[in-house]
Design a protein around this nucleic acid. Structure first.
Length: 412
RNA sequence: GCGAUCGUAGCUCAGCUGGUUAGAGCAUCGGUUUGUGGUACCGAGGGUCGGGGGUUCAAGUCCCCUCGAUCGCCCCA
């Protein structure tokens, strides 16, 4: 019988690869506390309309790339493809509005039915940070600082660039869009086939086309700056002044866009060239229109999400967990005593382990493989004297230690 | 959805233009050492060569289909 295969685009990780993911999450958890972002839990599944309404019913994203199914009650359910929409739903349905402005953080699995490639999976993991109910540019600044400090904490800030742009307010956005369509219509003949299709569907996206011909045309395209209202311009100025003051390096990318209509003002990506085509590590922006799209009151908000797998690929290998001591009992009498010693050490906060079976040779070999600092050998002879042999696995030195003083001996 | 490359042991791979019982290293298990790991030496287990079909006297090797992996395109909430 052939073994059961994993679902395409899912990962099962042991050892260093798993440690990398948890190191990223641990760093995020440290940093988000420093910034006062409260941990939230939201469901993995939501009613499909939570995502469909926020994204727009007709897009490819909704029709082809979500894991949606009908449950036994006939309800259309979707595995979350991201966190933002679910958090906004909770903000409305759980009455979190009373705590606004709210700084929230979470992390976990998300699901997208896409073709797997480097740094892209069908079940993947995200860090997520949101500020809901704040229209002030300081919220954007705080979120950008949080992202930068996370990258610094992970030791990868040097290889990452913050690309920043503004999409302006709705008036700005509409005016810019119109002039972009006019401009690209004029160059339609020279655009790539993909971009000609985008002209109908999502003209802003032409700006980040990878096609060299498109890029030349984009170089002469109207900039959002020409359409910024005074208010939008002031807002962007406040954001950039704020991150400059906070010491966050950034680069203007006037071609950075967001496809969905609910985005306003700030749009940004922390990118790297070290991960091939999937170079975006953290992506976010201001989404003042989203809560309204979910049926709530007008609510300004800004946030970002980061791909945990991508961050994990960037960092140095984390130190693996290793026991301080592995107990090696010899014989049945020793094994009973060893169980007491093991429990005692663990209660004292010493990372201690003991194999379930095996010869002394085997057990020592396992202790060595586990990276233990010490092996504690307990045999009948030692037991009679209330002692054990403590062996330093690095130096090979071994000495007798009283069973009551093992934790002290290891600490030294 | 589209394109390219690739699937041989748990892992990394070798296997020439199709030709007897498919190999190595690492890992695992056992032994040299019944109370001493990391080193060394000896030995063992483990593969219907991703799956299915076809060509051929003969297929791991050639052809088709399929599944999967990798990288890219599309998409990127």
């Amino acid at each position: 019988m052939t073994p059961v295969q994993p679902v395409r685009g899912t990962q099962s990780l042991l050892g260093e690869d798993a440690d990398r993911l948890s190191a990223v999450v641990a760093a995020f958890d440290r940093v988000r506390r420093l910034y006062g972002f409260r941990r939230v839990e939201v469901p993995t599944i939501e009613q499909t309309q939570v995502f469909a309404r926020s994204i727009g019913e007709t897009t490819d994203v909704v029709s082809k790339e979500m894991y949606s199914f009908e449950d036994r009650g006939g309800e259309s359910i979707t595995l979350r493809p991201e966190f933002t929409a679910g958090i906004c739903r909770a903000y409305l349905s759980e009455g979190w509005q009373q705590f606004a402005p709210l700084k929230l953080a979470t992390h976990g699995s998300a699901f997208r039915y896409e073709r797997p490639q480097k740094g892209r999976f069908r079940e993947f993991h995200q860090l997520d940070a949101e500020i809901i109910g704040a229209a002030e540019p300081q919220a954007d600044v705080e979120l950008l600082s949080l992202g930068y400090q996370l990258l610094t904490e992970l030791g990868i800030a040097d290889g990452v660039t913050l690309e920043l742009n503004t999409l302006g307010d709705p008036d700005t956005r509409e005016a810019w869009r119109t002039s972009l369509v006019d401009y690209f219509e004029g160059h339609k003949a020279n655009l790539s086939e993909d971009s000609r299709a985008r002209l109908q569907r999502n003209p802003l996206r032409i700006l980040d086309s990878k096609d060299p011909k498109d890029r030349d045309i984009c170089a002469g395209a109207p900039s959002v700056d020409e359409h910024l209202t005074d208010e939008a311009s002031d807002f962007f100025g406040a954001v950039t002044a704020g991150i400059d003051a906070a010491g966050v390096p950034w680069k203007r990318n006037a071609r950075l866009v967001r496809g969905l209509d609910y985005y306003r003002h700030t749009a940004f990506e922390f990118v790297t060239d070290r991960l091939g085509a999937q170079g975006t590590l953290i992506a976010g922006g201001r989404y003042d229109g989203l809560v309204e799209a979910l049926g709530g009151p007008h609510t300004p908000a800004v946030g970002w999400a980061a791909g945990i797998e991508r961050l994990a690929m960037m960092i140095d290998a984390p130190q693996r967990d290793r026991p301080s001591v592995v107990i090696v009992p010899l014989g049945q009498r020793a094994e009973a005593e060893a169980g007491r010693v093991l429990a005692g050490l663990r209660r004292e906060g010493v990372a201690a382990d003991m194999g379930y079976r095996g010869s002394m040779k085997k057990r020592l070999s396992r202790a060595n493989d586990a990276g233990a600092a010490y092996a504690l050998i307990i045999g009948d002879d030692e037991l009679d004297r209330g002692e054990a042999q403590l062996k330093d696995l690095t130096t090979g030195e071994q000495r007798s230690v009283s069973l009551d003083l093992i934790a002290d001996a290891i600490a030294r």
